[in-house]
Design a protein around this nucleic acid. Sequence first.
DNA 1: CTTGACTCTGACCTTACGTCATAGCTTATG
DNA 2: CATAAGCTATGACGTAAGGTCAGAGTCAAG
Lengths: 245, 245
Amino acid sequence: MAGVSVRTLHLYDQIGLLNPAERTEAGYRLYGEKELLRLQQVLFYKELDFPLKEICNILDDPGFDLYQALESHKIALNAKRDRIATMLVTIDKTIANLNGKIMLTHEELYEGLPKEKAEAYRKEAIEKWGEETIVKSENKLRKLNKEDIKQLKLDMEDINKQLSNLMQEDPTSPKVQEQIARHYENIRSFWGTSGASDAQGEAYAGLGELYVSDNRYAKVDGEPNAEFALFLSKAMKHFSETRLG
Amino acid sequence: MAGVSVRTLHLYDQIGLLNPAERTEAGYRLYGEKELLRLQQVLFYKELDFPLKEICNILDDPGFDLYQALESHKIALNAKRDRIATMLVTIDKTIANLNGKIMLTHEELYEGLPKEKAEAYRKEAIEKWGEETIVKSENKLRKLNKEDIKQLKLDMEDINKQLSNLMQEDPTSPKVQEQIARHYENIRSFWGTSGASDAQGEAYAGLGELYVSDNRYAKVDGEPNAEFALFLSKAMKHFSETRLG
DNA sequence: CTTGACTCTGACCTTACGTCATAGCTTATG
DNA sequence: CATAAGCTATGACGTAAGGTCAGAGTCAAG
């Protein structure tokens, strides 16, 4: 009738938030105009995410301090909003990093695919991430010729091998950081320097976090290796703070 | 040890999200480094408000589409954030209206209080709503002399009497709207016109909503009257839309 | 050996309902 | 009038992510 389910009315009746005006012989609940008005009030506060118990107090306790309730509720909501904002930033970073890595695999895919399939795949990719991202990336890739790419891939393999052999070292040690510097330059060749340069540090550290949160990327001998991921992320974080910050 | 409770570890073990590396004879759970790393991943996604079940999939299902998960999660978070923003606006409006009404009662209080008590009350009020609000309001009130205030109060009583006698009428009828216009002017004398003028309409309609959501304000013969509140809010809404919008 | 601090399992509690089962009521139709 | 469709009532269980409690076992220190 008014956008609330029967079950909801049962519940409100049960907790004394909204009692029916009367019952029929058969026990059916009957609500009058007064109850509809009260329901409006209940829904108003429910829209503000007040718990039902507190709505009870607001409506029934004459000494209830509505001000303080609103103010503290406002503070709580602000905190929630801030937390969501933080989460959105983190998600965006994660997606950006994921895109960065996927670009690498793209290049591998494009290389070995017949043109038709590559075209179909491209369409799908555009649907997923939007045209802009894809086109940007392709433009970047076009500037690299096949020899460049092959070389970068070989370099990356070597860097990974070196780093996986240094896993027992301190991630901040010069030996490790030297390889990390190579790693960074290699990654940057794919990413280009299109991002705002002062954000590159964060992006690189974020990529390290990605390695930890998604085990598909940090591999040793072809197998995902969580310890290697953590090692890399520490080393990359240190690098970004000391050399890119 | 790592910011998670024992109960949490029990739960994660139970749902297969994080199983201990082994158990002692006595059944104690033992976690190795690998498990700590996995815990980091779990916490990462939990911070993003992913449900535990989905974290299971992210970490264990190799065919899981992390992109789509992140994108749709992002959409959901955006919706949540927007909803919270709306709630904050509504709360602010409600508080502002409440303040507006409280200012009226303030003036009554200040009038009859000895200076010391008034001063103490003022301090408390400043703590609650911030100095700016209070000072603004006091400046406004100072411009009105006692005769003005007395007259406004008498007018308001008359307006309320007239309106309560019109409760059976259509809230949009000219007779009602004529009294509502008086009501608006009277209120405005207290509020001043300090708000952005294009927001006055919304503020007035919002005051009407307040009457519905808080039964302390709309009274007939000194008694709260929910029907009168609804009648007033409808009439005020119509007024703000036709005359202030 | 005892004590205190820890762990184990199992169970119940929280929010605001949705869903289901069983039973009774109401109403339209044959 | 009988019956079936569609409503309602009550009671119960399930949800997410643990918190809290109870009773029992375990560990290290004094």
